[in-house]
Each structure stands twice: as C-alpha cells, then as structure tokens.
Design a protein around this nucleic acid. Structure first.
Lengths: 214, 214
DNA sequence: TCTTTTTCTGATTTGAAAGTCAGGAATACT
DNA sequence: AGTATTCCTGACTTTCAAATCAGAAAAAGA
C-alpha cells in the first residue's frame, strides 16, 4: 500500500490517443457533448483525466477528433456508391437510401450526434456541417433533385425530403430508449431493423414515386 | 444609484409561477435539460433565481411542472379526435397524423423534448412515458394496428410506424438549425411547413396503403 | 393599527466538471 | 551508462451552476 502503480494495463503505447477517441465517440454520442464528462471518457479509455488534456487541448478538440474518426469510417463505407454513378437517378437514390440506413444502423453515434447538434445549433453544428453532414446532405439532395427532374419522383422540395429521410432513418435507432419504454420492443433486433428499413424504403419511395398510370 | 429596485415589473402577483413555467418550457425545449440553467430561466421570467426554488423544489420539479403545462395544452387540442371516433380506421389514422403534425408545428417544444429525452433514456424519459408520450404513442399504435387489421395498411409493425412518424414529423422542425445551415432554407416558413406535411402524409399513407389492384 | 403569512431577494454555500502544472516513469537516442 | 524526449499522472486551481438561508417587502387577517 505504498505509493501505487504496478500493473501495466493494456500496453500504454501509441494506441492511447486512439482509445481515447473511441471512448469519446461512444460517450459523446450516447450522452451528447455536455452530459459526457472528461472524467468518464478517461475512465472508459483507462487513462487519467490529465492524459486527455495531454493528447487533446480541450474538450472541444477531443470532440472534433472523435468526429473526424467517425467521418473516416463512414466515408470508406460510402465509397460503395461510386460504383453506381451512372445508373438512373431513382436507382441511385434507392441505393443511397439503403446505404444511408445501413450506416445509421452500423454507426448509431452519427445519427445521435446529428440529432443533438442539429437541434441545438451553434458552433459545433457549423463545424459538423462543414466537415461531415453538409456535403453528405447536399449530395443526397442533388440525387433526389435529379430523380425529381427525371420525372421519377413527385416534385417535393429535395431538402425537405432529405431532412425527413435523415430524421426518419435515424429515428428508430435514436429513439430506442423511448421505444423500449413505450412499447417494450427492442429496435436493435435484426428483425426490427429490417422492418424499419423496408418501412422507410416502401414509404418514401413507394409513396413518392409517381404513379405509373399518369 | 442608491440601493436599487423601483420599477414594479409586470405585476408580481400569482402569475409568477406560471411565468416561470413558461420560461422553463421555452428554455428546456430549446436547450435541453442540462444546457438550460436556472439563472437563465429566472432571467427570462424576470424574477430572481431564489424565487425559482421558492416555487419549485429543484430543477427537476420545475421541469416536470413545465411538462405538465405542455400536456394540458396538447390534450386540449387532441380532443378534436374524439369527434371521429367511429370513422374507418385509416380515416382516423390520417386525421391523427395530420393532427400530430399540426401539434408538432404549434408546439416545437414537444418534439424537441421527446427527441432529447427519448434518445437519452433515464428517469425523465420514464416520467415522460408515464405522463405524456406513452399513452399518446400507444393510442396512435392502436389506430395503426386497426388500420392494418382492416387490410387498409400494409402489415408493418405498428410500433415502428409510430416511432417513424414521430421522428419524421418532428424532424424538420427539430432540425431547423441544421436545415438552415446545410441548405440555407428556413423550415419555419408556412410554405415549407405545408410541403413537409404533404410529404409525410403522401409518403407514409401513399406508400403504405395497400394497392387497390390486389 | 399590529401581527402573521406569503412571496420574493441578495448573499452565500456546495458540488461538480474543465483545465493546469510540476514532476514521475518509460522509451529512445548517444 | 547518461541524457533527452515522449507519455502519463496526482494534486491542484478555476469556473460555473444548483441549492440554501436569513431576512426584506408586500399582502392578508386580526
């Protein structure tokens, strides 16, 4: 019981910063920027709180670093879309929507953060718009607009469609705690996930495609 | 410049508690529970911070009081539905959806709070489920289930449909800051609001109604 | 009028979380 | 080995918001 220390826990090597980023992403997305504390993040990453400040200047910088890590993963997955760059607009749109839902599912952090910051506004939203969601949103909107212009989709404002897709797509995952509470259902089961995916695609595309008889 | 005081601001009478509740609702919904501070609420209501603690034991009680006030207003508006209690299920559902969207619009606080707390989970969500959103959600789900049973709607899980409606319906309003940032559009304009309403109704009902040719 | 109760406030306490710093331990370099 | 550098930590300071409290001002009641 002298001073302390001893067990070298988990190879304190250069992975430390990465572990911190992961812990930060997890906590920021689950709790939002304010509720997540530096102390919790440090504990989750298995380091002292001061270590966080050694690797990242302040909480804000840590948040940005976590977001950039998330972006890297997502951009990688979205590269799938490039393969279909010359398909018909509504085909591309359907693919993009499926991919969007899949990514929402694989990275719940994204949807939660977009919902939290997109609601609050402020500097972090500005940053997110510039680095993460803005380009993504506008690309989707262009796709939707192309589908509208080609006559395949009813002429709703593309921006409204995209925001609605975003909200609806992330909704079931974001609102998992509420769903459990109100309905006793767990939306993280694969069956529920698939039902949700079909629901969105059927509803948005089924409901918005122009009827063939016109 | 002696001591201070003088102008009797806004009749400190029995409306004080009500003014505090309104200020609290405004700030809680705009900023969420944590970001909203007692000091700000007090300032908004035009009273001292200690007065908040005179009328409400602590921040949590104040939050509950604000929510109950919101519930009272909403319940009143929802009474409209009773008039259609014996229409066909899908007609009732369409009415309920319209009303839901209208309420989301008239009371942005509701959607924001549901999104914030429904994402976070915890005690406040438990309370909300018991007193505000649970009964509402389950009533809507029953309506949707009835429409499904009657064969008018495709057989998607009713709970998933309701959560999606909730997310999509409140989405454009909740994500107004993001929409402004990403698209430079203001969803609070009447035109945008109407487009959104038509979009949701068209998409969800148009896409989910069983085709007449089957 | 005097007294009591209700309503409200300034000043203060408490607690929690962000951020700082001097220095210890490990690693790399010579 | 000796030295420098990188990585990490415990202890501390600072900041900010919730909650408390003693009492002032106003209203109600006698």
């Amino acid at each position: 019981m002298s001073v302390a220390v001893a067990q070298p826990p988990a190879k304190k090597g250069p992975q430390t910063a990465a572990r911190i980023r992961e812990a930060a992403l997890e906590l920021f997305s689950r709790l939002g920027f304010e509720r997540a504390t530096m102390a919790e993040i440090a504990a989750e990453a298995g380091v002292s709180q001061a270590t966080l400040h050694y690797h990242f200047a302040d909480k804000d910088q840590l948040w940005r670093a976590a977001m950039l890590q998330l972006r890297a993963v997502i951009s990688e997955e979205e590269r799938l879309l490039e393969a279909a760059a010359d398909a018909a607009p509504e085909v591309q749109l359907r693919m993009a929507m499926r991919l969007f839902l899949r990514i929402s599912w694989n990275h719940p952090a994204l949807g939660r953060i977009v919902a939290l910051e997109g609601m609050a506004g402020g500097e972090r939203l500005d940053w997110l718009d510039a680095h993460l969601i803005g380009p993504r949103n506008r690309r989707l909107a262009e796709l939707a607009q192309a589908a509208i212009d080609s006559g395949a989709l009813k002429p709703f404002p593309a921006a409204t469609m995209i925001i609605t897709l975003q909200a609806a797509g992330a909704g079931v995952i974001n609102l998992a705690p509420m769903m459990r509470k109100s309905f006793g259902l767990d939306p993280s089961e694969p069956a529920a996930r698939e039902a949700h995916e079909r629901l969105i695609i059927d509803a948005l595309l089924g409901g918005l495609l122009t009827p063939r008889t016109t």
